[in-house]
């Protein structure tokens, strides 16, 4: 039952990509900015969770909630300090600022605690359950559960609440939304807060699942999640979820076939192919040019 096991491995990896990809896609959807600092918010989330568990002796769920809250605040601060003033600047200026913020966060963390890795303490009991010959750890079921709950919650916020409605309106047409009395600034901040909270949650989950965290851990998962977002159709929330899961499974299949050294390459080949063949992604709408 090797293939069932591989599928489980792929979905676990993919659900982490999906959580990070959601933040990318939401921010892109609303202000057309690829927020490259997003991977570093994910890293900060992992560290906040680590300190909450290891230093303050909290359980998994309190640590998860603290990490999400603090990351939401950090996300809003990043937006207010670095991106807000660039809202009417060229796209490239905002993009370069995002890369700058990313480097600033990484090096600030390295300055304060050094670059050495940290091992996550074991907070969730880890038993293996054997189903059809595949070993599924109780941790990965828990993680998948948390991911699904967060995604449902997100769908609910976006489609059923007032702020969600505002977000969709701003994403559609910011000027018209402003004319309708929507506070665009607050809506954008809310988007950053929600996206960053999801990245923080992904950070804690990553730490619990893979144990090792370090200040540069956000770089590669951040890029992979970006690929996932593009694959699903950037700007589309279901697209990010599907893109993340597909990417996780594809990477696992590549390793399972014995090409483990090509795994990272596979992710970026997907990015190139998608950009050439279907730039709007799996779920993307054909973008209409505004005149």
């Amino acid at each position: 039952m090797e293939w069932l096991q591989q599928l489980v491995n792929g979905i676990s990896l993919g659900s982490i990509y999906a959580l990070i990809a959601l933040g990318y896609t939401m921010v892109y959807g609303i202000i057309k900015l690829i927020n490259f600092a997003h991977g570093d918010v994910f890293m900060l989330g992992a560290f906040i969770g680590f300190y909450a568990i290891a230093r303050w002796d909290l359980g998994f769920f309190p640590a998860l909630i603290i990490a999400m809250l603090l990351c939401a605040i950090i996300g809003v601060i990043i937006e207010r300090v670095a991106y807000k003033r660039l809202r009417n600047a060229t796209r490239i200026a905002a993009l370069i600022t995002a890369i700058g913020v990313s480097l600033l966060i990484e090096n600030t963390v390295i300055y304060f605690r050094g670059a050495s890795p940290e091992a996550y303490p074991e907070v969730l009991s880890n038993k293996s359950i054997s189903i059809f010959g595949a070993n599924i750890s109780s941790q990965s079921i828990m993680i998948l559960g948390v991911t699904i709950v967060l995604m449902i919650l997100l769908q609910f916020i976006v489609h059923k609440t007032k702020i969600g409605k505002a977000m969709r309106a701003v994403s559609h047409d910011p000027d018209a939304a402003r004319l309708m009395g929507i506070n665009v600034d607050n809506t954008i901040s809310a988007t950053f807060a929600i996206g960053s909270a999801l990245a923080g949650a992904a950070g804690v989950i990553f730490g619990v699942y893979y144990t090792r965290i370090d200040p540069l851990m956000g770089v590669l998962p951040g890029l992979k999640a970006f690929v996932a977002a593009v694959l699903g159709g950037i700007g589309s929330i279901p697209g990010a979820m599907v893109g993340g899961l597909v990417l996780g499974v594809v990477e696992t299949v590549v390793s399972a076939l014995g090409y483990s050294l090509w795994r990272d390459a596979a992710a970026f080949v997907i990015l190139i192919l998608i950009l050439i063949l279907k730039p709007s992604g799996i779920f993307g709408k054909n973008t209409r040019e505004k005149v």
């Binding site: 090797e2 096991q5 591989q6 491995n9 792929g10 676990s12 990896l13 990553f206 893979y210 090792r212 851990m217 590669l220 990477e251 696992t252 299949v253 390793s255 399972a256 014995g258 483990s260 050294l261 795994r263 990272d264």
Partner: peptide
């Protein structure tokens, strides 16, 4: 006979292959 690259965090797919 399998190989990994430094800085990887997910080894499960290759380990599953080894296990089989």
């Amino acid at each position: 006979e399998e190989a990994y690259v430094a800085d990887d965090t997910d080894f499960k797919s290759t380990l599953t292959r080894i296990k089989s």
